[in-house]
Amino acid sequence: MDLVQAVLLALLQGVTEFLPVSSSAHLILLPALTGWEDQGLAFDVAVHVGTLAAVVWYFRGELRPMIVDWGRSLLERRLVGESRLAWGVLFGTVPVGVAGLAFKDVVETSLRSPLVIAATTIIFGVLLWWADARGQRLRSEHTVGWKDVLVIGVAQAIALIPGTSRSGITMTAGLMMGLDRQGAARFSFLLSIPVIAIAGGLSTVELIGAGESVIWTPLLVGTAVAALSAYLCIHFFLKLLERIGMMPFVIYRLLLGGALLAVYA
């Protein structure tokens, strides 16, 4: 992998990881359309480290009280302060963890096709539009209850299907449950922290077991580019969300899905 490929793939990962447009779909499609070889497991780990660093740093102010209050809730055996949100993030991660272990082989083989990506891109794009248009948008992420966590957590598990978009479907579910746009987006981003950490950890174990040789320069460049682009993406997405809504991303998904159908159907 040369540095141009590393920069473009890392930039794509950093931007699309947190937008409701599916990072996995774009990372599958770019090499397929350009004829590049698969970027390899080591590079996937590197860009996941970059995006994880970005979201943790961006939400560092919220994460500190969440962790402290979560610890207090264990000791006091009751919800205190931000422990509700911390427990919500933890329990919301369980469905995707279970589904990932159960369907890992299917997701990585049978479902990695342009037609599957086209279908999920369109279907979940329309669902995002519906949720944004019809959702009550009354609550912030700090009000999430167990019903919200269950619905959003199950939605996150569905995002294992390429083209669905983890951030997109969790925002969709959050909007359907009555969260406002900022609340749905922020809870989605907080949910990404354990998911990215688990995925990156499993890939690291797999990489160590495979004993692959590592060329460090593109990995370091990829990590830095993914971290910077992901941080900027989160910042500007949250800043502009109330003004632009979800419609630009819905339109993009419909155009992308239609183009894929035209090429591969």
Rank of each mutant, 00 (worst) to 15 (best):
S140A: 07
S140P: 05
S140G: 13
E141W: 11
E141C: 08
E141L: 13
H142A: 14
H142W: 15
H142P: 08
H142L: 12
T143W: 09
V144R: 02
V144E: 00
V144Q: 02
V144I: 11
V144L: 03
V144T: 07
V144A: 05
G145D: 13
G145E: 11
G145S: 12
G145T: 15
G145V: 15
G145K: 07
G145H: 13
G145F: 12
G145I: 14
W146I: 13
W146H: 04
W146M: 15
W146A: 06
W146P: 14
K147S: 13
K147A: 15
K147R: 15
K147N: 14
D148F: 12
D148T: 10
D148Y: 11
D148Q: 12
D148W: 09
V149P: 03
V149N: 05
L150G: 05
L150N: 05
L150K: 03
L150F: 00
I152Y: 01
I152K: 02
G153D: 02
G153C: 09
G153I: 00
G153A: 03
G153N: 02
G153L: 00
G153W: 00
V154L: 13
V154D: 06
A155Y: 06
A155H: 07
A155S: 15
A155L: 14
A155V: 14
Q156P: 14
Q156C: 05
A157D: 02
A157E: 01
A157Y: 01
A157G: 04
A157I: 03
A157N: 05
I158C: 09
A159C: 09
A159E: 02
A159I: 05
A159Q: 02
A159M: 04
A159S: 13
L160Q: 15
L160R: 12
L160W: 14
L160H: 09
L160K: 12
I161M: 12
I161H: 01
P162L: 10
G163F: 06
G163Q: 06
G163N: 06
G163V: 08
T164S: 03
T164D: 03
T164P: 01
T164K: 01
T164R: 00
S165Q: 05
S165N: 06
R166S: 10
R166W: 11
R166N: 14
S167W: 05
S167M: 11
S167H: 11
S167N: 10
S167T: 15
S167F: 09
S167D: 11
G168H: 03
G168A: 13
G168Y: 04
G168R: 00
G168V: 06
I169D: 00
I169T: 05
I169W: 00
I169R: 02
I169F: 02
I169Q: 01
T170S: 13
T170A: 07
T170E: 05
